[in-house]
Amino acid sequence: MKNLLLLLLLLLPLTGCLDDDDGMETLQDAELTIAFRAEYGGEPLHIQSEAYGYPTGDSLKLLLFQYYLSDLALNDGSGRRQYLLSDIDLIRWNSATDDPTQERTYTVSVPVGTYQGLTFGLGVKPTLNATDPSNFPADYVLNENEFWGPTTRYVFAKIEANAQLEEDGRYDTGLSYHMGSDSLYRGVQLDRSFTITDGSSPHLTIVVDVRNALSSNGQTLDITDPTKQAVHGGNQQVASGVWHRLSRSFRLEVN
């Protein structure tokens, strides 16, 4: 019963979109597909099968890239109103067979018209981060075995790779960055206008570049430093730069 109530409370913001459409035509239960693409250095990310260069002169192969996003929402043309698409979702690439672009289809009720862009929170929002996985069904997105424990809570994002630090053809240095905490939770606003009409919706793609998370704006994580090759629950400070760069590595494409 409590779980049901929790679900209903989580859905309240969505129902809030239904009661006031300012006279605009509202699409009821429309399906809106959002694509999520991962890149490395501007190219589609291929797990394991591609070796990528790194600014330190080394190379690496990505084995895992994933992130939670909370409160994915459309921003209306005024930028004052949001229409929730998803409360929480996990986007994950961990297989060589994974397409660099994944899609999620959301059923929403939104007014037709022009929107300013998308917003979401990178990570698990504090209200959900305070809940245990056991509060949800076993196949819920917060039950993907990404829960550290009672104090450290959920892992918001992971980057795992094997790096070649010598010119020996061996990708034998593990890199493992597991990031997350309430203080790291970041709002992301992607401004790019698009129009939703009855019968057509734009092709929206949220793009994130993993390389930029590791190295951008003149800052590069030194993957040759053994103290910077792994970040887990308690040593988030090491990854703060990665996290901040990751949160700024998203962009929205509209086609």
Binding site: K2, L5, L12, P133, S134, N135, P137, A138, N143
Partner: peptide, 20 residues
């Protein structure tokens, strides 16, 4: 919803050990 929620939270239940 809030009334129902509070009504169901009259005891400080620990979270279940496992997801269902």
């Amino acid at each position: 919803f809030l009334l129902l929620w509070l009504a169901c939270n009259d005891a400080p239940d620990a979270p279940p050990e496992f997801a269902a």
